[in-house]
Design a protein around this nucleic acid. Structure first.
Lengths: 139, 139
DNA sequence: TCTTGACCTGGAGCGCACTCCAACCCTGAC
DNA sequence: GTCAGGGTTGGAGTGCGCTCCAGGTCAAGA
């Protein structure tokens, strides 16, 4: 319809950081709210609304939400008004998982830091002080 | 040798949180420092040293280190003294990746929280106040 | 007219990290 | 003696999330 009706998949790829293959895969797999619009020649045309949605689901993915949960969320949004509580529940459940995961990683990282400290000490006591100071700047 | 020379794979599984299959897989895949000791009947016998190592590599894995990097680290430790700097480099590189990953997840989580806030507001303005207060306790 | 390049589709393939399975071996209890 | 239980091995299978490919369409430029 509109001559300037959206971005090519290459442009969308550049603006979202997802590869064209991934963009097509998300669409095939039901992660988009609707099939992306097409040009007269059948090429995808992404709108700003599409890009905003892609950026949201990219955040969900980047925080570890599985594809099928993203699809469930997309399904809810697609159904339209009335299920906001369900969407909220889904997002909150995810939030709790992310927080738990963050805490766990931070705990493990603390232990790894301790290990790093042991190696630093070991090396400080072993190598010539000058050489060591050059090779192991503090963090 | 020692009659009480270690734990069965089932015990090791319980104490590390890894399944027996995973414990065997790690050994096969070169993640252990040595092949785990065997009883006279060929059953694995895990020592406390084995368990400590497993707990360390579990922390590495839980912070996202790929199996092949864990194997590289195990290779270094197996080689013995002299490559502490390399081990330190490997752990520090991993540490930086974990920190970057944590920052990224926290950023995404902030955006998701904002989305959650929008739904909370929407629901507060839509549902009957009493019902709403019951259904959406703060966080 | 021919070529190039961007895109399309359906479907196969891949890397990762397990997870499962069949076939077998011991030991000890009944 | 036989059977259950707990292990062994090598190798196949699985789920996830992409990633790649073949064969095709279309439009614009030389």
């Amino acid at each position: 319809m509109n001559p300037t009706a959206g971005l090519s998949i290459a442009d969308a790829s550049e603006r979202t950081g997802l590869t064209p293959d991934t963009l097509r895969y998300y669409e095939r797999d039901g992660l988009m709210l609707h099939a992306v619009g097409r040009s007269s020649t059948g090429h995808r045309r992404y709108t700003e609304t599409d890009l905003r949605w892609i950026r949201l689901i990219t955040r969900l993915r980047a925080t570890g939400m599985p594809i099928r949960a993203v699809r469930r969320y997309a399904d809810l949004v697609r159904q339209g008004d009335g299920n906001e509580q369900e969407r909220l529940d889904l997002l909150r459940a995810h939030r709790q998982q992310v927080l738990a995961q963050l805490a766990e990683v931070q705990d493990h990282l603390g232990a790894i830091d301790a290990k790093i400290g042991i190696y630093v000490e070991k090396l400080e006591n072993t190598l010539q002080p000058t050489l060591d100071l050059e090779r192991t700047p503090t963090v």
